[in-house]
Design a protein around this nucleic acid. Structure first.
Lengths: 131, 131
DNA sequence: TTGTTATTGCGACTTAGTTGCAATAATAAG
DNA sequence: CTTATTATTGCAACTAAGTCGCAATAACAA
């Protein structure tokens, strides 16, 4: 199945490309000035994931967030999204942390997917809380 | 609000206590010979989480899994579920990995929650796939 | 034994994400 | 340039996980 170039796709990819955050469907839709259907957004994002353009993370509420693949490792041609994400419980932003992780797996185990999410308060929101 | 001892609660806690897995609501309900209402199971599990008896992990599909707190760190009285979980895409089991994680956070950030999930194939299922 | 209120069961509800299908439009072929 | 092929979209209906309100039940303390 060959991919085609469409407006919706480039719009979505642009939003993701020009932020360092991982966006939920909701946040992404808010950023999209062009009206794109819910279902289409999901389908586009899933396609991007398959193609390795974007990675998906689950937050602690079970909501998907998508981020452009910038600093992901690529050992032997396979994309590894082996970094953590930080979600602020107050402002809701999800950011990719730089620190790369390697988890020792029991022998014989095969890893296909990585989902690391830390929740808490980002610097700004933590300071506001202290006041 | 004071806690009371009920059958449902001890049943649920026993199931969790005597497995080293993190169970989804579905799996847990299957293990419960006594019939307990869906909503009750969720409420009990959430109470257990609040009380620090059990920890919750999200899998890559956004499904909650619950595991009895056995090997969790407890620095200065606060529970930290700072270990990873491995979910087999084939048999569906979620196990707690022993390896403890420490993620360096940007300065000023406060962590309240940790969710680490790796998906792949466990030894048994990986071997079957190779055949 | 009785009163208080935490807990349960039921059903209705919410929300995120998916899917079927007909319409649209990107690309290839002529 | 025109036409054919089929990937992609929009819409609406659907699914599944989890939550919530409320009346009924049952721990526990008095």
């Amino acid at each position: 199945m060959k991919r085609r170039n469409t407006q919706a796709q480039t719009d979505i990819l642009n939003v993701l490309k020009f932020t360092d955050r991982a966006l939920s469907h909701e946040q992404l839709q808010a950023e999209l000035e062009a009206k794109v259907d819910r279902a289409t957004i999901y389908r586009v994002l899933n396609r991007f994931c398959e193609d390795g353009l974007v990675h998906k993370v689950m937050d602690e509420d079970g909501k998907q967030h998508f981020a452009y693949c910038a600093g992901c490792d690529k050992p032997n041609n396979k994309h590894q999204h082996n970094h953590f994400h930080f979600k602020c419980r107050k402002c809701g932003t999800v950011e990719c942390l730089q620190h790369k992780i390697h988890i020792p797996l029991p022998e014989g185990y095969v890893i296909t997917d990585f989902n690391g999410m830390i929740a808490g308060y980002c610097k700004r929101c933590a300071e506001e809380r202290d006041v």
